[in-house]
Design a protein around this nucleic acid. Structure first.
Length: 765
DNA sequence: ATAGGGTTAG
């Protein structure tokens, strides 16, 4: 007897005191040296390896054990598989353990239930629950906590989807529904199980095993009469899972903080916010104080309700209890402040955190982007890469809208490359964001190409594509996609109707627009919002039904904003209706007296009609109010460089060449039949001067620059910041015909495709 | 055994 042996003995009596891999190896070696270890001694070593999460070492021992393995050996290997994410193996070993005649005890169920939960295998999980009840483990604290976790996760699963792992490509094939209750009253495991399981390969079809276990453990009859869970409605599912969760919770003889946190987070994540908050209070009555887990379950509720006051209260509580350095709490706080539009506070919380993980980076990036701070979002994304945190699918879907809004196609393409290399291109969120980005950057064909390659569509991906077509004036493509979406059983929402109505308005489809507007309110019971009204009003204005548009806006059930009246005012300009324009402006100035655009528009309308006095009066009024119009500007991106032009701009280094080319172009255009429409010129000047003003429009400068600096045949993409200008529109059609190229002009988020002398919008701007 | 982040918006 020496000290080493004594040490070994103490360690073996208290296996959890072995804290490192090297210590465990030493102990193992020592035992092998002194004697031929017994199976139980080896099992103890195995449990030590398994506690340290050493799967490989655990398996080496397990495979060397004489058969049958001990309960401890089974338990250890099952736990180790689960914590390595090898759920199929874990469950397979659990079945084999039952088959070998060993009874599972209370500390094997948490691992098994975790595997069922993460594999989303509802049926297996419920069978295990049956097994637990039968073995009298229904009162074990840890087991019950794991059960509640399982039900809360199943409850959160997407609608239409109690998704079984065997539905996935991994195993293929959906099992036939089996009969329930073959060996109902037996308290013994049926002996034929042994033989049946023996034939199953370890890596094999758990589906088959699942069915065996399912038939064996039928104490808990879940759903009635062979109806599988997949056909249950959301409501039924909710009441069922909530019921199971609460039943387990209520039956527990003793509840700890984990039990409370599990039931609180389950309710919180499934929209039962009031219940969740009530339970936090109840928890206090049970003498348990909310911990960091409780807080990060509750914070998202206040983020969703945009309740800054309550959110701050929680922040205070977190600081007082020393939880403010916790990354979980930090991410929730960043998100909460961002949802309350307090991005500055989000940043403060972010910088206060001692370290950042992927999720806290994602939270701050999403916080910036969702609040329109795109450059800041991109900056954080860059810093994340510098910090060597690998962006995941959430990072990409958060950052992509920044590229879409900034129309930085080159950045979007770079990210797309990164996405493909990281194998995230199959993700619905990312694919939808990509569709949107390409559409907003003017590449509608690439957007469609990505859309067609998607394997699965949700409402957002349909909407992104429909909106893309709407913005590009491809109304019939938009409408046919909308119909396809409805046929495929996807229910359009508020945004989807915005998209289809925008498409109608862009192409002047009045009847279709009414059809969808009525379908929205009547079939889908969606209350029309400002955007829907704006789209319809805009449409009526575009096609010249101005009075009707005026009535429509006046009859809205919500107060029309300045922007709704503005669209009508713009239409009044196009259709040259001065009386109505004055009436509309009056309304506009009352709701939005600071609207510079309204003054400019009305003044332009007066100018176009030759009422220079009225126009001047308005300009003077603007000047007196200190309002200054920003000069309209157009820009074109060539070789990743942005070239901007304002009307009459001579500062571009190639100005002379541009001017030269423009002159030649104009001559050709006039030979083709183009006539300058000088009535649209807004200044009281000579005809020749008008001509000059029109031809030096920023848009024409930008297009001409595109023609001289890109190879023949390339599409020219220009972004302009002008209000609708009839002459520009006509001119661009001529230019497209002469140079034989497609010209894409983006104006106020709307794209016009000019080709062969025609425009995609059919002149319903 | 329990917790945090994501796509569409004239």
């Amino acid at each position: 007897m020496n000290t080493t042996q004594n040490l070994c003995k103490t360690l073996l009596q208290n296996p959890s005191s072995v804290k490192s891999k090297s210590q465990a190896k030493q102990l193992h070696a020592q035992i092998l040296r002194t004697s031929l270890p017994s199976p139980s001694l080896l099992s103890t070593i195995l449990s030590i390896y398994s506690n340290l999460n050493l799967l490989h070492d655990s398996l080496l021992i397990f495979n060397s054990l004489p058969s049958p393995p001990t309960t401890l050996a089974w338990k250890s290997i099952i736990r180790c598989y689960t914590s390595h994410g090898l759920f199929l193996h874990s469950l397979s070993f659990f079945i084999q353990m039952l088959a070998s005649g060993k009874y599972p005890d209370h500390n094997v169920f948490p691992s098994v239930l975790k595997s069922c939960t993460l594999m989303k295998d509802l049926r297996f999980g419920e069978s295990v629950h049956g097994c637990i009840i039968r073995l009298g483990m229904g009162f074990d604290l840890y087991t019950c906590n794991a059960l509640m976790n399982m039900y809360s996760k199943f409850w959160s699963l997407e609608e239409g989807g109690v998704q079984r792992f065997c539905d996935s490509k991994m195993l293929g094939g959906i099992p036939e529904p089996r009969e329930i209750g073959k060996c109902s009253n037996s308290h013994d495991l049926p002996c034929e199980l042994d033989e049946r399981v023996a034939g199953i390969d370890q890596n094999g079809d758990l589906n088959q095993m699942s069915n065996i276990l399912y038939q064996v453990n039928t104490y808990k009859k879940v759903f009635d009469e062979g109806k599988t869970s997949d056909v249950y409605s959301k409501k039924e599912k909710e009441s069922y899972y909530l019921g199971s969760l609460r039943k387990v919770f209520e039956m527990m003889p003793k509840r700890d903080i984990v039990s409370w946190n599990t039931v609180i987070s389950g309710n919180a994540q499934n929209g039962m916010h009031e219940d969740a908050l009530m339970m936090v209070r109840e928890m206090g009555n049970a003498d348990l104080r909310p911990d960091s887990f409780t807080l990060s379950s509750v914070l998202p509720i206040f983020a969703e309700y945009v309740n800054l006051l309550k959110g701050k209260e929680i922040h205070g509580y977190a600081i007082r209890n020393g939880y403010d350095a916790d990354v979980f709490i930090g991410s929730s706080l960043i998100d909460m402040y961002a949802k309350c539009t307090r991005v500055d506070d989000s940043c403060r919380v972010f910088y206060m955190l001692p370290q950042h993980d992927g999720i806290s980076w994602n939270s701050i990036i999403a916080g910036c982007v969702q609040n329109g701070m795109f450059d800041e979002g991109l900056k954080f994304f860059q810093q994340m890469l510098i910090a060597k945190i690998k962006p995941n699918h959430v990072s990409f879907s958060s950052i992509m809208p920044a590229c879409a809004h900034l129309t930085t196609l080159h950045l979007g393409k770079q990210l797309h490359g990164y996405i493909i290399r990281s194998r995230f291109d199959g993700n619905v969120f990312i694919a939808s964001a990509l569709v949107d980005m390409y559409a907003k950057c003017g590449n509608i064909r690439t957007a469609r190409w990505i859309f067609d390659k998607m394997e699965l569509y949700d409402m957002v991906s349909w909407t992104a594509m429909i909106m893309g077509y709407a913005l590009h004036g491809h109304a019939y493509d938009a409408i046919s996609l909308f119909k396809r979406m409805e046929v495929e059983g996807v229910k359009p929402n508020y945004v989807a109707f915005m998209a289809v109505l925008t498409a109608c308005s862009h192409a002047g489809l009045v009847d279709e627009a009414w059809k969808y507007f009525n379908s929205m309110t009547q079939d889908y019971r969606i209350i029309p919002g400002l955007e829907h009204y704006a789209a319809v009003a805009d449409l009526l204005g575009r096609v010249g039904r101005l009075e009707e548009a005026y009535e429509f806006i006046s009859d809205m059930h919500i107060e029309p904003t300045g922007s709704v009246w503005s669209t009508l005012l713009a239409a009044c300009r196009v259709h040259k209706n001065i009386e109505l324009a004055e009436k509309v402006s009056k309304k506009l100035f009352t709701v939005d007296p600071q609207n510079i655009g309204a003054y400019v528009l009305l003044s332009n309308i007066y100018s176009a009609a030759g009422r220079w006095k009225d126009a001047r009066k308005l300009r003077i009024a603007m000047r007196d109010k200190g309002m200054k119009k920003k000069p309209a500007c157009s820009w074109i991106e060539i070789k990743n460089k942005v070239h901007a032009f304002v009307a009459g701009d001579k500062s571009h280094p190639y100005y002379d060449r541009i001017n030269e080319a423009l002159k030649v172009l104009l001559e050709q255009m006039e030979r083709e039949g183009y006539v300058l429409d000088t009535t649209e010129v807004l200044h009281d000047v000579e005809e020749e001067q008008k001509r000059y003003l029109l031809c030096s429009h920023s848009e024409r400068l930008a297009i001409t620059f595109g023609i001289i600096s890109t190879p023949a045949g390339t599409t020219i993409r220009v972004t302009k910041n002008l209000r609708v200008c009839v002459d520009c529109h006509t001119a661009t059609k001529f230019i497209s015909k002469i140079v034989g190229r497609e010209i894409v002009v983006r104006d106020n988020s709307r794209f016009h495709h000019f080709k062969d002398g025609k425009c995609s919008c059919g002149d319903f701007w």
